[in-house]
Simulated assay, not measured.
Amino acid sequence: MKVIFAGTPEFAATALAAIHKAGFDIPLVLTQPDRPAGRGMHLHASAVKQYAQEHNIPVAQPISLRLNGKYPDVAAEAHDLLHNTEHDVMVVAAYGLILPMSVLEIPRLGCLNIHGSLLPRWRGAAPIHRAIEAGDTETGITIMQMEEGLDTGAMLLKQSISINSTETTGSLHDKLAAMGGEMIVQALHQLEQGPLTATVQPEQGTTYAAKISKEEAALDFHQPAEVLARKIRAFNPFPGTHAQYGNSTIKIWAAQTVTTNKTGAAPGQILTASAQEGILVASGEGVLKLTELQKPGGKRLPAAEFLQGFPLTPDMQFNRT
């Protein structure tokens, strides 16, 4: 069976590698155009493009697939390429471009999507972040038959995984990426034998995982400590949470809630800041212990090491930036 693959980040590259290693013929890969990144803002290829080039798989990087959009000539060229590339099915994982019906209808067996949640919960752009932020105890992968709606297609395969109390988006991403690779290979093998069983998504339980904005990364210590701890885990490694201390913006990479008799302080007030007691900060409800921090221009450090190079003063305030 011939599989066109569309995806961009590392999550998608893991799936592409799994399909390739399983022996499927991949005549074409679609991925986002190269983007500027790093201090020099040089153009960098996506993780999917890098894998494809390393394994001599043809790559196309259209900026749009919408024939009636801003770049109709580019979209028309991409449509011609898809029509002229022999394939049976398209697999899509975190591609970053909307696939219009004119594209979804091209593959003989349609388009399959690898989605990082247990649909219909967390449709949308940031399902891993939002699951941790909301305090979900489980998530998973759904292999879905794509349609025009936002992650609304019929479910073909589904597998769950627990979210532990120390899980970050980074660690959960890697687990789900590996799971997604295994599941899409399973789905493709089954598809070779005949149609997969499709289950229509229920509307009950639908939630939307909005794209993460940098503005959300500022911690509001008026929120409960438990909410802050989840957010810090959810935003690790991207975009990272932060708070203002004097004139410095401190990134906070890890924290946990603690029980203490130090009560009555204003939200954001530093209660203790020592290697022995740790960095304890009052919140709107409860106390947060900061365990990994980063000063401007510095490295991520455990709290005790951070304090050696950036002393914090008890009774001072962390504020939103």
Score class of each variant (00 low, 15 high):
Ala273His: 11
Ala18Glu: 06
Lys70Pro: 10
Met155Lys: 09
Thr259Cys: 11
Lys295Thr: 11
Arg233Lys: 07
Glu285Ile: 10
Ser162Gly: 04
Trp253Thr: 02
Gly284Asn: 07
Lys21Ala: 15
Tyr208Asp: 04
Trp122Val: 09
Pro202Gln: 11
His222Phe: 11
Asp151Cys: 14
Leu290Asn: 10
Ala17Cys: 07
Pro311Tyr: 02
Leu307Val: 11
Ile161Trp: 00
Thr199Arg: 04
Ser102Ala: 15
Val103Phe: 10
Phe11Arg: 13
Ser117Gln: 08
Ile163Gly: 03
Leu97Asp: 06
Ser213Tyr: 02
Pro239Ser: 08
Ala134Gly: 02
Arg108Met: 03
Thr31Cys: 06
Glu10Pro: 00
Ala75Thr: 06
Tyr95Met: 13
Gln204Lys: 13
Asp220His: 05
Leu312Tyr: 05
Ala177Met: 00
Ala210Glu: 07
Thr139Gly: 02
Glu167Trp: 02
Ala15Glu: 14
Lys2Ser: 11
Pro100Tyr: 06
His222Asn: 15
Ser162Asn: 01
Thr207Val: 00
Thr291His: 00
Gln186Arg: 13
Gln193Met: 08
Arg230Pro: 04
Ala229His: 00
Lys231Thr: 03
Thr206Leu: 14
Asp88Ala: 09
Leu191Pro: 03
Asp25Leu: 09
Gly194Ile: 10
Pro267Lys: 14
Ala225Phe: 09
Lys175Phe: 07
Asn247Ser: 14
Ala265Cys: 08
Leu188Phe: 06
Leu119Tyr: 07
Asp315Gln: 12
Ala210Val: 01
Asn113Thr: 12
Lys211Glu: 06
Ala282Ile: 12
Gln276Val: 13
Pro302Asp: 04
Gln308Glu: 12
Val59Gln: 03
Gly7Tyr: 14
Phe221Pro: 12
Glu77Cys: 03
Thr169His: 10
Leu65Val: 11
Asn247Val: 12
Gly284Thr: 09
Gln61Asp: 07
Ile57Gly: 08
Phe306His: 09
Arg233Pro: 04
Thr291Ser: 05
Glu138Cys: 02
Gly153Asn: 05
Thr31Lys: 01
Glu10Ile: 08
Arg300Glu: 12
Ile26Gln: 03
Leu156Met: 04
Gly135Trp: 08
Ser117Glu: 07
Leu150Phe: 14
Arg123Gly: 13
Pro195Thr: 10
Gln269Met: 14
Ala273Leu: 12
Thr206His: 04
Ala229Gln: 01
Ala37Asn: 04
Lys158Leu: 14
Gln223Ala: 12
Leu280Phe: 06
Gly69Tyr: 08
Leu82Ser: 13
Met155Asn: 08
Ala210Pro: 00
Ala15Ile: 14
Ser162Lys: 04
Pro100Lys: 08
Pro33Met: 12
Gly153Arg: 02
Asp73Pro: 00
Glu105Ala: 15
Leu191Cys: 05
Ala93Tyr: 03
Ile232Tyr: 02
Arg39Pro: 05
Gly180Trp: 06
Asp73Ala: 14
Thr137Met: 10
Thr259Glu: 15
Met179Gly: 06
Ile141Trp: 10
Tyr71His: 15
Ala12Tyr: 09
Gly69Met: 09
Ala254Thr: 01
Thr169Glu: 12
Ala273Thr: 13
Asp88Arg: 02
Ala198Asn: 03
Ala254Phe: 00
